[in-house]
Nucleic acid binder design. Structure first.
Length: 204
DNA sequence: GCGACGATCTCA
DNA sequence: GAGATCGTCGCC
């Protein structure tokens, strides 16, 4: 996958990433997933629901890195979530990876998620996706396009997803800017998470 | 320095 | 439908 494909607004990149492959290689082995559900988040001042909305802080600085950088953050005191930093430029927009199908390394991902029954649940939901891939804070800031990087993004061997098979709707669990249909998923795919409305909040 | 709250998940 | 669980940021 070329950097220029990611050097675009997150809403564009989000749809590009459907069907793409994300691979994490460690000493124990490799887990590779096919992305089935994504959400776009805007940059500074552009999206009240984005971590970058209020500007650069030590916690969100990776969002300001170049497109193709992996942004991993910690939520709810126990979960990690993974994002692909987008553009244009380093505008701090990003795409949250919410769902995926494990296509390689099912055994390793099952060891990371021992309670899971169905394979389709291994990387269903953003925190589960990060867990199945073994992504945590130490992967924050990695370049997903650099040759030799432990976490890689590619479209090799993946057919583009047909437009008619892509669903669109509001983001999950987001309490601000709830009117933006910035979530995309592959229709009828069992690895797409269930929709839950966010707690309502006064716009900021 | 403090406290509210969050891009979640699991189980009842 | 609620609890687990804690880092981060904004505000006092």
């Amino acid at each position: 996958m070329r950097r220029s494909e990611l050097d675009q607004p997150a809403q564009v990149v989000a749809q590009t990433l459907l069907g793409a492959l994300l691979t994490h290689s460690v000493a124990d082995g490799v887990v590779s997933v096919r992305i089935t559900e994504v959400e776009a988040y805007g940059g500074v001042g552009a999206d009240p629901a984005s971590h970058a909305h209020r500007g650069r802080t030590p916690g969100n600085e990776v969002m300001f890195a170049m497109p193709g950088t992996l942004y991993v953050y910690f939520v709810y005191g126990m979960h990690w979530c993974a994002n692909v930093v987008c553009g244009p430029g380093s505008d701090a927009s990003a795409v949250l990876l919410r769902g995926a199908a494990v296509v390689e390394g099912v055994g390793l991902s099952r060891r990371r998620r021992p309670t899971v029954r169905r394979d389709s649940d291994l990387a269903k939901g953003p925190a589960n996706l990060a867990a199945a891939l073994g992504l945590s804070g130490s992967a924050n800031g990695l370049d997903l396009l650099r040759r030799g990087s432990p976490v890689r993004l590619s479209k090799a061997g993946s057919r583009p997803v047909e437009t008619k098979r892509v669903g669109v709707g509001p983001r999950v669990g987001v309490g601000r800017a709830t009117d933006r249909p910035w979530r995309w998923w592959i229709i009828d795919d069992p690895t797409v998470s269930r929709y839950r409305a966010g707690r309502g909040r006064t716009p900021r």
